[in-house]
Design a protein around this nucleic acid. Sequence first.
DNA 1: CTCCGGTGGA
DNA 2: TCCACCGGAG
Length: 384
Amino acid sequence: MKRLLHPLSLTTLEDYTDPSFSAAVIDWQKQHGRHTLPWQNTRNAYLVWLSEIMLQQTQVSAVLGYYARFLERFPTLRDLAAAPVEDVMAQWSGLGYYTRARNLHKCAQQVVAQYDGVFPADPALLAELPGIGRSTAAAIAAFSSGTRAAIMDGNVKRVFARVFGIDAFPGEKKVEQDMWRRAEALLPATGIEAYTQGLMDLGATVCTRSSPACGRCPLQARCVAYATGRTKDLPVRKPKKTSPEKHAVMLVVIDQGQVLLELRPGTGIWGGLLSLPELDGHVLHNTGSVLPAIDQQALTRAVAPFGEIESVETLLPIVHVFTHYKLHIVPCRITLAHRNLLAGEAGFVWLDSDKLADAALPAPVKKLLLDLCGDSQAVQRSMF
DNA sequence: CTCCGGTGGA
DNA sequence: TCCACCGGAG
């Protein structure tokens, strides 16, 4: 029978069901998974919950010691709920993400107050409690009451991205939704504990981010990434956040074969180098593609010590990328009517343009000036 | 150094 | 939808 097509949708309604997937994971988990972690082999929801919260963003090896000490100090949910939050924080100290500890304490008090100290089995109810999201709720429900529910943590995302060749960033909503749909469809009819633990163990010990042990993977035969040699490229990494953008209006004053330069402060960007004088008040943050309007009065004031402006020409911006931000250099070319030959200003120098190549200038500034002076000389030559 | 990640809040 | 929270790993 042909695949159903939703009448109003451009895409097919995929059916991701495949019992052989969970069978492979469960079988592997029973033979090669982890079975003796301190929070395993129990259905005590307090023990399970505590472990799942500690394991958020945190590896097993880091959790082990904290888990043991925490339970020594707070053996039961009621002990935890009754304790001062400061004691909880103290036990958590060093584990990181301290909101987890505050939420843990709040959650304990809430479970005592709302549920008489008994965690609900329904993942939807668990997910309403502080610090428990959809994935953690599913894990707690699966391990503490055998409830069929899908987890979706970093391990699962990595395994799914590779096995199914999902070639898009999992942080995108539709990609994550698709993964959740797969996760729900692939749940086993029985054996949710071994399956859930198996996915976690697989991601943590075999399908690792770098150099996965594909030779030991029970899903190798069905893994798209393995088959196509793309384990290195999947899952698709988070697109690097666009670095902040700044603008700097740089004054290009060329007169009588000399360029006006300013010595930069010893510290900070381009510390101690010569550079073009910058117009104050024009370094704008996150302005995107919008160019700063140039303040003519500020311009006149800035140039005044060196002469009288005859004309101003804004040149095409140059983009310079640093590790932590992007600088748009807006060159502002100024022609002087009269050059002030007296004193000048401290920290400023007139440099012969034929010495630019050897001057201590930032690379983008040197390139800009060499281009400009080259051009202007060419233009001057052509005029004769 | 950079990258990674569940949850919750902006 | 974006990002802070933190510590560990590469």
